[in-house]
Design a protein around this nucleic acid. Structure first.
Lengths: 201, 201
DNA sequence: GTCTATACGGTGATAGAC
DNA sequence: GTCTATCACCGTATAGAC
């Protein structure tokens, strides 16, 4: 992260940021391995060699995309977790935050969903694993609090519930399109309703 | 599909089937694009060129893995759908079938989850799209029957419920391991319980 | 059924001119 | 900040010997 110039005061992005956004979209659509530096350069209207004026490598591009996103996401989680709401309210807000992330950082979430598993095997992307662990611990604590408070069922396997929530929420990035007919908030409402009360009548 | 020799009467697999199983595991672990023919050959203890005695191309390997799996899966769906159970029972059995598929065809499901999106853009893999459409229609019909019969909630967006079920069930392939502590049936029980009744108490 | 040897296109990346 | 030119490597796939 050479400089903190994501957006200037007028909302104009630097060339570097434009290129990173273009790369993120392509990575999200086709996968990281499946996107060539020439694809990125073509989409940006330049030649592949010119990309290396801005970035060390293709790998450092995903790295920056993912690490920036993760930092922002966990910062927003932190706000919820330190609040003094009850467990059920926290669960709801955490789920809503996730759908907001899908809405606002769509490419980064998609890349994370598709390529993180493979990438996190490399030392450079070890922080992805660390974040996953942190994420699981936060949720497991939250869920057991909910059971203790009597607002969540106690007859379910806690780890399974955690995976259920994690997967169902994030996998929505596969079909959710920002700016589509359904807003992130509407999706979150329905998902929470299903998650909390089920689909049976 | 040159010959129908998946397993002989004694349970012995042909060399060709062995190689296909090895390829499937690697594709599932690392992704199709990310697995080289040399990786497959190495894992099989032969040289990459030798693979081409058995298969036309790397692409034809995934093709066979995916198409074989899809055919088997939809055949088992058919049995459930033509039965005269009520909608709720059918939903339950469809979900169970999916977890059984994850258990018994783990690699194929994983490949489908990770690479089908990208592959189905190619004409050769158009059948993946067709199957997805078929799958959606079957589920949408089933869900609207459930609402009509009064066993499923009618206040939810039907398409959203469909996506929720589809994603929830199949994404479990990411963490479920055949032969692990949890059986496919135990997972199905808990998932159905959450799906139908929710996690709130 | 596997090996040796090899063709050939694509890929990430570099050096220096403009 | 971008282009030209180019490299070394890795990828799939082939032909024919054993």
């Amino acid at each position: 992260m050479p400089d903190a110039s994501t957006t200037s005061g007028t909302g104009a992005a630097t060339r570097r940021d434009e290129l990173l956004a273009i790369a993120a979209e392509l990575f999200a659509e086709r996968g990281f391995k499946n996107t060539t530096v020439r694809d990125i350069a073509d989409a940006a209207g330049i030649l592949s060699g010119s990309l290396y004026h801005h970035f060390d490598s293709k790998e450092s591009m995903v790295d920056e995309i993912l690490s920036t996103f993760q930092a922002a996401l966990f910062a927003s989680y932190e706000e919820v977790l330190v609040s003094d709401s009850d467990a059920r309210a926290k669960v709801e807000r955490m789920v809503r935050l996730s759908f907001e992330a899908i809405d606002q950082h769509h490419s980064a979430v998609a890349i994370f969903q598709n390529d993180a598993g493979y990438l996190s095997a490399y030392p450079r992307f070890g922080y992805l694993r660390d974040r996953s662990t942190q994420f699981r611990e936060v949720w497991m604590t939250l869920l057991s609090q909910g059971v203790k408070e009597g607002v969540l069922r106690k007859d379910l396997d806690a780890t399974l519930v955690y995976r259920f929530i994690r997967d169902t929420v994030w996998v929505a990035v596969r079909w959710y399109r920002p700016g589509g007919t359904l807003s992130a908030d509407e999706v979150a409402n329905q998902y929470l309703s299903i998650l909390l009360d089920g689909i049976a009548s």
